[in-house]
Amino acid sequence: MNEIFIKQNLAPNVWLMGIYSPLVAKKAKPGQFVILRVTQNGERIPLTIADFDNEKGIVYIIFQVVGKTTSLLSQLNPGDRVIDFVGPLGMPYEHSPEDKDYLFIAGGLGIPAIFSKIKMLHSQGKNIDIIIGGRSKENIFFENELKKYCNNLYISTNDGSYGKKGFVTDILNELLESGKRYDEIFAVGPVPMMKAVVDITKRFSIKTLVSLNPIMVDGTGMCGGCRVKIGNEVKFACVDGPIFNGFEVDFDGLLKRNSYYQDLENISYKEHKCKIGLGE
């Protein structure tokens, strides 16, 4: 159990891993996530279930190395194990059968959170467009995998080294301004990106869902650390989400909460890098 089955480098600091966890694979649904621990002294971190293979019992995760725990994870190799791997957590993605036209927008590490949804909707014959974006050409990954499941794939890079220069929201704006319409738009990525998407889709009154990433501990509704403001209510993202109606999310509040431990996280990561010889 919890053995790493495959490992693949997708982009600088971005890894795909297939982890053997038949119990999680059996129950997983698009939109859900796992919580894992890498070492005995390690913290619990949530990662989206990017894809799953019930027959082989494998759960796929895609993660970016941003701090100590993701760095430790990236150092594991096929045959190694993560010590804890629990899930599937959160509410599965739900969509109304009548909806036909979908637009998915993934910025940064948003791709794992859209991939399994797209696969599912594609198998149901829905029309899917996708916008992905990154800083530069080297940060764009999964292009070919996504193409298999959509009608149009639009790409933006901030520096213009690939696709359209600018942000995913520039493409979104263009599409909508040119009269293109969707039954549902699903956006996932950095908080400011999701906020910018919602600012646009609100103008066009198109239903917009987002997948949130607050700081979590247990992932079962036990600590309340992941609380987010949705409309006038406080919700626990790990059990009520992570998918919410984008029009109701308090993005500014979420952004502030996510930065709370940054100084300590930096200490932790710096010390770790020194230990493995990457320190400045």
Binding site: T39, N41, G42, E43, K68, V217, Y261, L264, S268, E271
Partner: peptide
């Protein structure tokens, strides 16, 4: 559970 009082020996802040 996470031994945050032993941070940074333990990772949870």
């Amino acid at each position: 559970l996470m031994k945050a009082y032993k941070f940074p020996e333990y990772d949870t802040p």
